[in-house]
Design a protein around this nucleic acid. Structure first.
Lengths: 219, 219
DNA sequence: CATTGCAGGTGGAAT
DNA sequence: ATTCCACGTGCAATG
């Protein structure tokens, strides 16, 4: 990995065209040839970058980075404050936990959060237009399709609506009700869902995870 | 901006929980306090990060970064290969060109791409649920609503469908047809659109821009 | 290998 | 401040 601090200007031509006027910035050249241009602020996203695979041509005070589809990043170096290289080796990578899949897993184990006497038919219940997150039967054995999101927005309601429309054509299942379950449900999504007779349920991830841990401790 | 190259392990607890085993990595601390952890490869996205506003507590060989909503990034430093700081100053920022707005502008000028004798009613035609990208009248003066996307996916078709449903309740406009126009239309989106009687049109940005340049040269 | 849906998405603009 | 929408989205899982 090469680290350069320099006063530079940058031009990118690809899907879009972008220009960075001259300023001091951090340039990173990674082992795979990818290049990042960072300012001293903002977020984790670079001002400009080139993703691998790509090729760096380095001339005096001018870098040219060409991407796989012909995109081009040109960096004009005006003054170099720092330039060092480091052998870092391969990274073992990230271990993640706690996303939508986990919410689905937890809710499948805690159907009592939806109502008394509910049972799970199956997770990822297949349909022609994609899998329904949870298919259940309520206390009266009526079918209920549950769509789970971390953040519940309009498109999630649309998705569930499509599932329900399809599922309700199946005489073995119909009538199928819908539940839209999410950690957080946007007001517009809630209005749309309730207008369509879809029940909204807010999930508390920490409580669900806690209940899960508690149940584990019992065994 | 502070640049550190170190062997470290990292733990993040926030929306999700993530762990990075010990390895050599680049750590960046920006002027606003944000922290990035980069490996020597992958893409422009850091392995872990903390967005501003946040606070860095630095102890011997252990950094603790706490975010605004209580998220926490803990970095355990095992060996430091490099540590330097640099004054970069404020960045003048990025100048972009060539996104969806430009597609809309170009198509508004080149309605002949949709058909003979079409005329523009207006761009960003207002409705109760948001503006329609282009409202037109075709050669027979029938109303047509056009939704423009760079990448045409299902949610864009749903959006246009909602507009059409609303517009068709207006007796001064109805019947209103729909056109889904995008640089690239995903197969599922195309099927859904055509199933609903919405015409799909693929836009060639380079050709449209070229035509625009050519027309400019005429004047 | 293309497609689909999620992301600690991020960022920007409009309400 | 909240909501909506695009992004050079990236990214992984899946058919």
């Amino acid at each position: 990995m090469r680290i350069v601090i320099a006063r530079c200007s940058v031009d990118y031509v690809g899907r879009l065209t972008a220009h960075l006027p001259s300023a001091q910035r951090l340039l990173i050249v990674k082992a795979d040839g990818s290049v990042l241009v960072h300012s001293d602020g903002g977020s984790y996203k670079p001002l400009n970058w080139m993703s691998p695979p790509c090729r760096l041509e380095e001339a005096e005070g001018a870098w040219r980075v060409v991407g796989a589809r012909g995109e081009e990043l040109r960096i004009t170096l005006e003054e170099i404050m720092h330039d060092s290289s480091h052998e870092l080796g391969v990274d073992p990578g990230l271990v993640k936990d706690g996303v939508e899949a986990h919410l689905q897993e937890l809710l499948a184990e805690q159907l009592h959060l939806l109502g008394e006497g509910w049972r799970l038919v199956r997770r990822e219940y297949p349909t022609a237009i994609g899998p329904v997150d949870l298919m259940c039967r309520d206390g009266d054995s009526a079918a209920v399709a549950v769509e789970i999101k971390r953040r519940g927005e309009i498109d999630g309601v649309e998705q569930l609506t499509r599932y329900l429309e399809l599922l309700n054509r199946d005489p073995l299942l119909a009538p199928v009700r819908g539940i839209f379950a999410a950690q957080e449900i946007k007001p517009q999504a809630r209005v749309l869902a309730e207008d369509r007779g879809i029940r909204c349920v807010t999930l508390d991830y920490n409580v669900m995870r806690g209940a899960d841990d508690a149940s584990l401790r019992l065994f």
